[in-house]
């Protein structure tokens, strides 16, 4: 079968052809040079979709929550795109992408598009091409696009710089009131969800999070948005309606208020810097492949210090840049 140009795939994707959407995401993920101009053109046509980030520790119930949420959003008429991220092996580079299994109820609905993605060494909870996949789904007419991050620790907060609404999922039994006031992922939530709230210890987690937020209210100035804490049980279905209501309310804030405008600018700023960072990292890798070994030899011989030699390597990169401009 012959190679179909990405521009033509983009037109097909805009008409809602799922095969074209899938193929474009693959090309974005592979970073083939041919797709980059198409992605730039696609980006200019996007911005309508509500991007919802869902994050939380491994096993907290993110995928199950995404499934329940997507079903409910379908009922109110949204087409829902999902990008679900799982880790790549640091040894083989391979991965098992298992989020889809939790979403099997969604499998037959053409108004739901699920794409699994491996981190391929990217830190921060998302994969390098995650936001390009979101753009492609936006182009294809998906109204709500859910990014499910890889299971995170305490420090992966990039999702809040990429989504209009960030949901942090906590499972019962994993910490106390001190955990709840620590810095990091818990701070980024627009909405807190406590999953598995059919369990008896869920109340404790709900209470810890609510108290943490009350401490914050005393310290912070009033804003357009009060962060809710919602208990959800995928088992009983409890809490999903409350969550959808909160998301809908936050969508209005994100798209209409002054705070929402500021957030959108912050999202663009993050995207710009992250893309530039990726470009630099790509070029640095190319320059270092050639330039690093002789410098490493000198470092091993104690010929100069690491800082001096690193500056030389960076100078190589800048020389390469000016040669290729």
């Amino acid at each position: 079968m012959s190679y179909i140009p990405s521009d033509i795939l983009a037109e097909r994707a805009a008409r809602g052809e799922l095969q074209a959407v899938g193929r474009l995401i693959s090309r974005a993920e592979a970073g083939v040079p041919e797709v980059r101009t198409t992605l730039a053109a696609i980006y200019r046509r996007t911005g309508a979709a509500h991007v919802i980030g869902i994050t939380g520790v491994a096993g907290s119930g993110k995928s199950t929550l995404v499934a329940g949420l997507a079903l409910r959003l379908r009922q109110v008429g949204d087409k829902v795109g999902i990008v679900a991220i799982d880790p790549s092996s640091p040894y083989s580079g391979g991965s098992i992408l298992g989020d889809r299994i939790r979403m099997s109820e969604l499998a037959a609905d053409p108004g739901i598009f699920i794409r699994s993605m491996a981190t391929r060494g990217a830190l921060g909870g998302m994969a390098r091409a995650t936001l390009e996949a979101v753009d492609i789904l936006d182009l294809a007419g998906f109204d709500a696009i859910i990014i499910e991050t890889v299971g995170v620790g305490q420090d992966e907060v990039e999702i809040a710089r990429a989504s209009h609404t960030t949901i942090v999922v906590s499972a019962p039994g994993l910490g106390d009131g001190i955990q709840a006031i620590k810095a990091g992922t818990l701070e980024i939530a627009d909405i807190h969800v406590v999953s598995k709230c059919d369990r008896s210890d869920a109340n404790r987690t709900l209470m810890d999070l609510k108290q943490m937020l009350m401490l914050g209210h005393a310290a912070a100035a009033s804003t357009d948005w009060q962060v809710p804490v919602i208990g959800v049980s995928a088992y009983s279905g409890e809490g999903i309606d409350a969550l959808v209501t909160a998301i809908t309310r936050h969508r209005a804030v994100a798209f209409r208020s002054a705070a929402g405008q500021t957030r959108r600018l912050a999202i663009a700023d993050f995207r710009l810097r992250k893309t530039a960072e990726n470009l630099l990292a790509e070029r640095f890798a190319a320059v270092a492949a050639e330039g690093a070994p002789p410098l490493a030899r000198r470092l091993a011989d104690r010929d100069a210090g690491p800082y001096t030699l690193a500056r030389e390597l960076v100078a190589n990169l800048l020389a390469w840049e000016s040669k290729h401009e």
Partner: peptide, 20 residues
């Protein structure tokens, strides 16, 4: 095995239909 050979593997889970 395929993961360890460096592939991205998506597993469907049990009892799927051909459509799914």
């Amino acid at each position: 095995t395929l993961r360890d050979a460096g592939m991205d593997v998506i597993y469907s889970g049990l009892h799927r239909t051909p459509e799914e």
